[in-house]
Each structure stands twice: as C-alpha cells, then as structure tokens.
Design a protein around this nucleic acid. Structure first.
Lengths: 216, 216
DNA sequence: CTCAATCAGTACCGTACGGTACGGTTCGTG
DNA sequence: CACGAACCGTACCGTACGGTACTGATTGAG
C-alpha cells in the first residue's frame, strides 16, 4: 500500500474535530436517534451554543461529520511501475479488500444509514456528499487502475464505468445492503480475503485478455 | 410471466389494509419523518385510537406496513418445462429485469430506507423482516432456476449461494444503494433491459457450460 | 326500540428535541 | 492587573410527536 496523498485536510479547528469525533462515536453507538445536540454537547464537553456557532444547525453538524470522516479516509496513489498480469491481479485484490474494509466499517455504515434516512427530506444533500466524497474517490482509484491495465493490454473493455460497475458488483454484491439493514453477517461473508480473490478472478475471466490469469 | 402463487394473504381486515395503504403512500411521499400517527389517521380517515387498537404502537404499524407490502409482491413459479440454453438465458433476463423493477419501486425504496434508518435501534427487526419477506423470496426463485439449470448441465457451480450472489452483484451493482441515497439515476442506468442483458451475458460467461450461449 | 359494540374526531398529557439566552470561568493580550 | 474574547454549563422556550381519554355518531342484534 502506498501512502496517503490527498490529505483532504478538514476545514475545522482541532477542537471542532474532536467534537466531530465524539459526534461520530455517538452516531455509531446509538444511531441517528441518539445524535441529539444536547447529547453531542455532553459527550464532547462543549456547550450547545458553541455547536450552533460552529456548525450553524443540526444539518450543518451532520454535513461537517461527513466531511470530517471523508478527510480521514485515505485515498491511494495509482501504481506507478510496470503492470503485468500478476501485479494487476494483486492490485485488484488489494483494492477489493480495501473497499470491503471501508464499506464494513462502523462509521461508514452509520453515516450511510444516516444519509439514507434523510434522503427523502433534504433533497439527498447528505447522500450526494457521501457519494461524492466516498465512493467517487475510491472509484477514481479503481478507474485509474483499470485504465492503466487497459493501456497495458491486460484487460479489454469499451466503457470504463461499466467495467467498474461490474467490478464493484462482483466484489460487494448485496453485502453492503445486508450490513446496512443490520443483518448478522455469516463468518463466510466476513472472509474478505476469499471474497476479494473470488471477485477478482471472476472479473479477470470476464475482462482479462490473458486467459492464464484466471486460474480457477 | 407466470401467475402469483403464494398469495401471502395479509393478516388484516380490508379496512386495515386500506389504512396501511394510506400509510405507505404517506411514507413514499414524505419519508419517515412524515409518517406520524396523527398523519396516518388523518390520511386514512381513521382515529388514532383505532390505529393503536389495531397495531399496538408505532412499531407495530411499521411492521404491519412491511408485511402488507410483502403480501402484495408476487412470487413466481419456477419454470416447469425443459430448459435449454436459450430458454435459460431468457428466464434469467426476465428475472434480472423483475429484480431491478422491484428494487427501483417507490414503496420498496421507502421501506428499505425506513428499515435502514431503524437498524441501529430496534435490533434490526424491520430489516430482518424486509430481508426475510423480500430478498429471500426472490432469492428462492433465482435459486430454483439456477438449480434447474445445473441439473440440465447448462451451468456449473459448487456453491449455489455464491452463484446467486454473483448473479445479484452483476445485475444490481451499486445501483440499489445509489437509489437509496437519493442520487439522480442516469438515463443509461435506468435502462433495465440493457442492464439485465449485460448482467446475464456476463453471468453465463462465468458459469455457463455452453460457450455459445455467451454471444458478446 | 334498546342495548352494546365499533369507530371517527378531537382534546389532552407528558416528554423530548432543536434552538436561544445568560451567568460564570478560563485564557490570551496589552 | 485589566480587559475582552471564547466557551462551558445550564436554564429556558416553543413545538411536535407518541400515546390516552372522552364524546358522539353509526350499525347491527335481539
């Protein structure tokens, strides 16, 4: 794994970041219902008045939480060296594993639940933010990798977005939704190593140009 | 398409079903926030007292709404006749299209949002119900079809659940989540015919035994 | 007709939350 | 020290919601 590049520095003071951290913790533990302004103030040892001064209102706090969390998710540099089939396979598996780790994270699940819960009333502002700062970033990483693989004649596709969509579906399937619904996830589904391997094998069988890269 | 088999008769009187219909309408239009007991009573021309007598409390109403909606979703009989490659392809495409239609439905999206929003506090009772009555039913249909295809030597797989997971991922990818988040869906993504075709082609390339069934 | 049951409509209660105002404390600066 | 800004803790206000109680109208059985 490479080092974080886009530090995505958050727009808030350290004190405010600490408050946002407490708020995220509260959200993860108790869901949206537990995320009251009084609760955040108590958990963060700050006053409600400061909350409103810093974040405007409750929605501003929610937006700030998403922005803050996004600033902590590291985005990775595309591989720089020469790509061969084995290296591509390895990078794709790493990507798949990272993606699953992110989606399965406590905070990610809580924020997605929050944004989905508000999707009907706020014009999807939070959902849009989550998509833009979350999936889009990780999608750019995958897109760059796929594009490099295509230039190296290791994969073939017409539409990069469609190829990425297939890759995403093979990796995640309905696991993300099941986790969002709170379903208990079986041990087998929790085995991200195997899941990533299977998904990438299938993806390369579909899009790979070098058949031996798909050793079933 | 075949005719509904499991009528899944709802456990409520016609009057109560009408109330549940109003409640669903309210939920679809305004999200969970708009689904107040007073609002339901007003929309359905019934009294709050009756609501509480019939459904116990607000959670009971939510559960009843999910059960009521599930009772309206038709589940289909597995194909009875002899399967060949072309027929399998057709049935799979139909399945994919039906799945996408269900997931993209107003009521389905609203109920999924509701269950996800409550996943943190109610021990996923609603989410579990949704999974059990929704995905599980449609999954059984796909499972039966895949099993029949395997017996006919048209596809090969070890783990039926895994094969279904792959099929689901290829069909849906992250479209469901994007819809739940309220993202505007592009015209291309809304083209379920093409999407279903592509997914089934890919699935048969991965699992099919007869290579000519995958005419790219 | 009479009685009992059901239900719509409404008023009501307790509570919890978003948002605001205020007193007291800390801390940096001249 | 003196002053002021930032801020914590808390009290407060208006509102909205879940849930309950009451009243009057309708209906169906004996």
């Amino acid at each position: 794994m490479q080092i974080a590049v886009h530090s995505n520095q958050s727009d808030f003071s350290p004190r405010q970041n600490a408050v946002l951290d407490s708020a995220l913790r509260l959200l993860v533990d108790g869901g949206e219902k537990a995320l009251t302004t009084a609760g955040v103030a108590r958990a963060a040892n700050c006053s409600k008045e400061s909350l409103y001064k810093w974040f405007g209102d409750r929605d501003g706090l929610l937006s700030a939480m998403i922005g803050f969390q996004a600033s902590k998710v590291r985005t990775f540099e595309a591989h720089a060296g020469r790509l061969d089939a084995a290296k591509l396979h390895e990078l794709l598996v790493t990507f798949a594993h990272d993606l699953l780790d992110v989606l399965a994270g406590d905070v990610s699940l809580a924020l997605n639940r929050l944004a989905i819960g508000q999707a009907s009333r706020d014009g999807s502002k939070l959902g849009h933010m989550l998509q833009e700062r979350g999936r889009r970033q990780i999608g750019k990483r995958a897109g760059a990798l796929l594009e490099a693989a295509r230039r190296a004649r290791l994969v073939r596709f017409d539409d990069a977005d469609e190829a990425y969509g297939t890759l995403y579906g093979l990796i995640v399937s309905d696991l993300h939704l099941r986790m969002l619904l709170g379903e208990p996830i079986s041990e087998k589904d929790r085995n991200f190593d195997r899941r990533a391997e299977r998904a990438i094998d299938a993806f390369l069988r579909l899009y790979g140009t070098n058949e031996n890269s798909a050793a079933s």
